[in-house]
């Protein structure tokens, strides 16, 4: 019974996300509305973590396989990619490395400089 209720709550929130997407005319997907809504009702205590936890962890664990069908679909996209595959692959690879490096280094720099700052305050 536990899992039916948990899955029901998660699908219910997904449904409300879908509804938001339909009503609000901006480019935000149902999943993002749902994520924010779920976080909000957990934070407000309307929903207890125990009421969704196991099913949520299960869905997160199997999440990688949900991307397989779309990625296999790249096979079908070859026709439209043929003309621009070289600049596209180079851009994709290098910009991905740049974004990881920039985001990670800047975040780490701020976190660590603050840590040093608090140490200095204490001493």
């Amino acid at each position: 019974m536990k899992y039916i209720k948990q899955f029901g709550i998660i699908l219910g929130i997904s449904f409300i996300g879908e509804l938001c997407k339909n009503v609000i005319p901006i480019a935000i997907p149902a999943s993002i509305y749902g994520l924010v809504l779920m976080l909000l009702i957990l934070k407000l205590g309307i929903l207890k973590l125990e009421q969704v936890k196991e099913t949520a962890n299960f869905l997160i664990e199997i999440m990688p396989i949900m991307f397989i069908p779309a990625a296999v679909g790249l096979l079908e996209s070859w026709g439209i990619l043929k003309g621009i595959w070289f600049p596209m692959i180079v851009t994709t690879v290098i910009t991905t490395i740049i974004v990881i490096a920039v985001t990670g280094r800047i975040t780490q720099f701020i976190i660590r400089s603050r840590k040093k700052g608090t140490h200095a305050d204490i001493s």
């Binding site: 998660i10 929130i13 996300g17 749902g34 994520l35 779920m38 936890k53 999440m63």
Partner: peptide, 11 residues
Amino acid sequence: LLTPATVCLAV
């Protein structure tokens, strides 16, 4: 299941 799973990232 992708949308429900993304919603669960909130957990």
